[in-house]
Computed example of a mutant assay.
Amino acid sequence: MATTTPGPEYAEQKVEAAAQGDGLPRPISSETQSTALDTARLWFSPSTVFTKAHFMGDVDPVQSTLPLSAYCFMTGFIDSISFTAVFVWCAFQTGNSVQLALALARLFSGPAGQRDTSFHIADKQALTSLLTFIFGSFIGRIGDRMGCKSRAWLSLGTMIQALFTMAAALAAWKSGQGSVADDRGDPAWTNALTFVAIGFMSASMGLQGIMGKRVNTQFTTTIVLTTVWCELMADPKLFSLNRRIISRDHKVIGILSLFVGGFVGRALIDAIGSPGTLGIGCGFRVLIAVWWLFVPSKPGQKNKRVDV
Rank of each mutant, 00 (worst) to 15 (best):
A2D: 15
T5S: 12
T5E: 06
E9P: 03
E12W: 07
V15D: 07
V15N: 06
A17S: 14
L24C: 11
R26L: 12
Q33E: 15
T35P: 06
D38M: 11
D38R: 14
T39G: 07
A40V: 08
R41C: 10
S47I: 12
S47C: 11
T48L: 13
T51K: 08
T51A: 13
A53P: 05
V59D: 00
Q63Y: 04
Q63S: 13
L68G: 00
S69H: 05
A70P: 03
Y71A: 03
F73A: 01
F77P: 01
F77H: 03
D79V: 06
D79Y: 02
S82T: 15
V88K: 01
G95A: 10
A101H: 09
A101D: 09
A103C: 07
L104D: 09
A105D: 12
A112T: 11
Q114W: 08
H120K: 14
H120L: 13
I121G: 02
A126S: 15
T132S: 09
I134P: 04
F135N: 07
G147W: 01
G147P: 00
S150F: 05
W153F: 13
S155C: 13
T158F: 01
M159R: 09
Q161V: 10
F164V: 03
F164I: 04
A167H: 06
A168V: 04
A169W: 00
S175Y: 03
Q177G: 07
S179A: 06
D183S: 08
P187H: 08
W189I: 04
T190F: 05
G199H: 02
G199W: 00
A203Y: 00
L207E: 01
Q218K: 11
F219E: 02
T221M: 12
T222C: 14
V228R: 01
V228Q: 04
W229S: 12
W229K: 09
C230P: 03
M233T: 11
S240V: 10
S247G: 09
D249W: 07
D249P: 03
S257Q: 09
F263Y: 13
R266F: 10
A267H: 14
G276W: 03
T277M: 05
G279M: 10
L287P: 05
I288P: 00
L293T: 08
F294K: 07
P296I: 06
K302N: 11
N303P: 06
